[in-house]
Computed example of a mutant assay.
Amino acid sequence: MNIHCLVHLEFETLGNIREWACNNGYSISVTMPYVNSIYPQPDEFDLLIIMGGLMSVYQEDEHPWLIQEKEFVKGIIDSGKAVYGICFGAQMLSELLGGKVSRNEFREIGWHSIRSLDTFNEDEVLFSIPSELTVLQWHGDTFTLPDGARRLFESEACPEQGFIYGDNVLAVQFHPEADESCIDSLISECSSDLVEGKYIQSEKEITGRDDLLASSSALMSAILDWFEDGIKASTQE
């Protein structure tokens, strides 16, 4: 399986994504849309992952490269390939599928609890997860649920925490890719975000949580295993 990642941060390491790919012998390629506007052809990869970013999807005037990136992602969605959006990537998927992205009432930063929705659990288990889990959040925007999508998760600070569209497009507002290196980079590069706020934790609360790092890695593995199973099944049809 070949994975292509759209990376929007110079300090992005891919964290648990890279670890999973290495453990399974899969390749990863990267495009940084704000640096290079050359995108791969759809037949060059099996899974597209849209990573997080410090910009907002509605800031095309400030970041004109967003226009071409959105055109590329929309083409990949329309092609039926597997697409996975994380944080900023999830917001982009919502917009491209007809939803809207705006500022959330609260900024949500640190380790916060999310709940998987009852309707999701009753419908089918896409990947093995508990009904409530603690994940890393680092965002100020939110999105609306696109028509035809199913809500997967919610949190106290932000009701829209993830959705699935069809059987091949997944969006999550949180950061299951976050390993210790990712968190150290966020703390170093984005420390100005750590201000007083109802859902903003301190550096001390965010760092040194080996138990939560382990559950984050397990969640990312479960999600990527799900994509792997779906891609394998589609190639055998």
Rank of each mutant, 00 (worst) to 15 (best):
G99D: 06
V57E: 10
L54S: 15
N16D: 10
I206C: 01
D141M: 08
R107H: 14
Y26G: 00
R107F: 04
G162E: 01
D123H: 06
T31I: 12
I114P: 06
P33K: 04
N168G: 05
G148E: 01
G208H: 05
A90T: 12
G99K: 04
G25R: 14
I114C: 02
S37A: 10
G166N: 04
F127I: 07
S191I: 06
H8D: 07
S29H: 08
M92K: 04
E237V: 13
C158W: 09
K204V: 00
S113Y: 02
L152R: 06
A90I: 09
D193A: 02
E124N: 13
E44I: 02
I129H: 11
T207N: 04
G52T: 12
C182T: 14
A157S: 12
S128T: 15
E19W: 10
S102D: 08
E196P: 00
E71Y: 10
A214N: 10
R150C: 00
A171C: 02
L213S: 13
G25L: 09
A21I: 03
L96S: 12
E154Q: 10
V57T: 13
F11K: 11
Y34G: 07
A157F: 01
S217A: 14
Q201G: 00
L66R: 06
N16T: 11
T134K: 07
D210L: 10
S181Y: 07
I3G: 01
S188I: 00
P146D: 07
G53S: 11
V35M: 07
G85D: 07
M32H: 14
P159S: 14
Y26C: 11
L152D: 01
E108P: 09
D46R: 05
V101L: 12
G98Y: 14
A21V: 03
V83G: 09
C22F: 05
I86M: 07
G162K: 04
S102P: 05
A90S: 14
F120T: 08
V125D: 11
W65K: 03
Q173L: 05
D210R: 10
S102C: 09
A222E: 15
R107E: 06
R115L: 08
R18S: 13
M32I: 08
G140T: 15
N24G: 09
